[in-house]
Design a protein around this nucleic acid. Structure first.
Lengths: 128, 128
DNA sequence: CAAATTACTTGCAAAAAACAAGTAAAATGA
DNA sequence: TCATTTTACTTGTTTTTTGCAAGTAATTTG
């Protein structure tokens, strides 16, 4: 249950909300264990824009591969950033929706967007 | 110089500041092309905390592998987020320092940190 | 000047991502 | 109603990235 680290001290092995081992107690490192890849924050961007269906995410201009999208949606569910809900169009299909924890990433997405707009040429925003 | 996309329309192939092809004109996608992995933002965190030497980044508790650190520092230089400067301790060694473009990621790191602190248990901040 | 430190590079195995194709359930249309 | 299409994935394969272990050359320290 405890692990030796350099010097002979021991520490409790830290876990995140999904029970995975953390690299460190740093909140940035912990956030990146969930969000740190080229696709996850784009799916969250789409969810913040009101998109909710697999096909909607797949239709975004970046062209996420379907197996990656599938894996990322599962990860968002596991970590409690999103949940599944019946689609609003009266069909039997399911959609995805951000939880409060997921919606709380709004400020992160907005600061990232603002940075991109200011510092990378030829980008343009569609998010408020 | 132009590329066919679905429907026969063509578009200019977009590039970022380092001349790499963009997945889309979205500023978030463009930012993630540079920052979207498990390590880059941790190096920027360390730079924002005032660390400047290879060994300082390598000593962070997350334990970044040295070849990954090397590659990421090169990427930060290529994209103009960091620059090399003589170390302040009078030795012949070089250190790294954020440029204005790199320092402009401060708000992104702070919102990420705040999200981690609020939503992931057992994390604690060392960044102001 | 010998030993240690620093800042990397190289080689390799494992994991993840990309690409292509397939599938089963649900929806649509004739 | 029943064949066709769409949706939401899964499976298999190739390519790329990651992580670890070691090595190395240029400093720096004792």
């Amino acid at each position: 249950m405890s692990e030796k680290i350099r010097g002979g001290r021991s520490r409790r092995e830290l876990k995140n909300g999904a029970g995975e081992v953390l690299r460190s107690p740093c909140p940035v490192a912990c956030a990146l264990d969930i969000l740190g890849d080229r696709w996850t924050l784009l799916v969250i961007r789409d969810l913040l824009l009101g998109r909710s269906r697999f096909k909607d995410f797949a239709a975004s201009p970046e062209g996420i591969p379907s197996n990656i999208l599938s894996e990322r949606l599962g990860r968002l569910l596991r970590h409690g950033l999103a949940e599944q809900v019946p689609a609003e169009d009266g069909t039997m299909r399911l959609g995805y929706r951000l939880t409060e924890k997921g919606r709380a990433l709004g400020p992160v997405l907005r600061t990232l967007r603002d940075w991109g707009l200011k510092w990378e040429p030829s980008t343009e925003a569609r998010m408020k």
